Simulated scan of single mutants.
Amino acid sequence: MKVRASDEVWRLLYEPLTRRWGVALMRYLARTADGDALLGDDDGVVPLEAAVPEHTSVRDALPAAAAGTLPGADDATAERTPRGNYSLGAPVAEPGKLFGIGLNYVEHAGDLSEDAPEEPASFFKPTTAATGPGGPIRLPPAEISDRVTAEAELAVVIGRTCRNVDAADADDVIAGYVPVIDMTAEDILQRNPRFLTRSKSFDTFLVFGPHIAMPEPGADLADTTVRTVIDGETIAENVVGNMTFSPRELVAYHSDVMTLQPGDVISTGTPGAGVIEPGSHVRAEVDGFGGVAADVTR
């Protein structure tokens, strides 16, 4: 499903990245629904190849994004185009490993009568679960699951192959951040906690996009608000500073377990989830980094 973002939608989602917060223009990488790579900022976008001819895809550009050597739109041979002119897909066509983190906000753990884990409670989702902006999120047949929840998260996109990274050096391997909506077939999980993988792995159970935001290295994320919105109602919100494990700590932790590679995605946990049904409209809002939305169907 292609989603064309109107100028007004772009303004509401992306202008606050800089204008409202009074910081430098946020740069980002994006990919059209037809697969064309874009580089831009709040003033518009250019074809990625117009700025970096050797990079033909967003994945190609991830190492340079992590290294801080990716040029800006000002360096392109093409003029900026308004972002609302494009229908956007997932920013990485074929993401790598998809990590989820459970109970990473202390308050969310308390809401579920759980203790916050002493180590990151991570799990994998298959790449087939990933879909782009707009979705749609397709619920499984009711006889398989009749209680699915959706939750907003801030995710980290890895830009460079790495192992045993210190949290203090994590920015050297992070290409950027992306808003995501994560789904859980909650009734399946409630039957048995060992069914976590099944409950998280249905097709379209991770809405990923619409861009990879690239803040300046060392940017303070603590006051960044993550908000789950369903049918216009804010279901839950919290700030990154209230995570048990910060995004940089999560990168370090998982790099001690396995090699991380460009295109791997670590969703850092949610402040809370809400039940969704056919006809619902879900939005993940991450202040300063944009948002992603999708409709729900069965």
Score class of each variant (00 low, 15 high):
residue 55 H to A: 15
residue 57 S to N: 06
residue 149 T to N: 11
residue 200 K to H: 00
residue 197 T to A: 10
residue 175 A to C: 04
residue 99 F to A: 03
residue 95 P to A: 02
residue 179 P to Q: 06
residue 292 V to G: 13
residue 279 G to E: 06
residue 67 A to Q: 09
residue 255 S to G: 14
residue 32 T to A: 10
residue 187 D to F: 02
residue 12 L to N: 10
residue 249 E to S: 14
residue 16 P to F: 02
residue 208 F to G: 07
residue 182 D to M: 02
residue 79 E to K: 15
residue 280 S to K: 14
residue 65 A to T: 04
residue 277 E to D: 11
residue 172 D to L: 11
residue 164 N to S: 15
residue 264 D to M: 03
residue 149 T to C: 10
residue 132 G to E: 15
residue 82 P to H: 15
residue 137 I to P: 12
residue 28 Y to Q: 05
residue 273 A to Q: 10
residue 185 A to G: 07
residue 237 E to Q: 12
residue 200 K to C: 05
residue 42 D to L: 09
residue 8 E to C: 00
residue 192 N to K: 10
residue 105 Y to T: 08
residue 20 R to M: 09
residue 76 A to L: 06
residue 226 V to H: 02
residue 91 P to N: 14
residue 23 V to N: 09
residue 103 L to Y: 09
residue 61 A to F: 07
residue 211 H to I: 02
residue 213 A to N: 03
residue 88 L to A: 03
residue 81 T to K: 15
residue 126 P to Q: 11
residue 253 Y to R: 12
residue 158 I to N: 03
residue 257 V to W: 10
residue 267 S to N: 07
residue 134 G to C: 14
residue 268 T to R: 09
residue 264 D to Q: 04
residue 87 S to Q: 13
residue 181 I to M: 06
residue 134 G to E: 04
residue 47 P to Q: 01
residue 162 C to M: 06
residue 165 V to L: 11
residue 113 S to W: 01
residue 274 G to T: 04
residue 4 R to D: 04
residue 259 T to M: 10
residue 181 I to Y: 04
residue 101 I to H: 10
residue 137 I to C: 12
residue 177 Y to G: 12
residue 271 P to K: 01
residue 5 A to C: 09
residue 67 A to I: 00
residue 110 G to D: 14
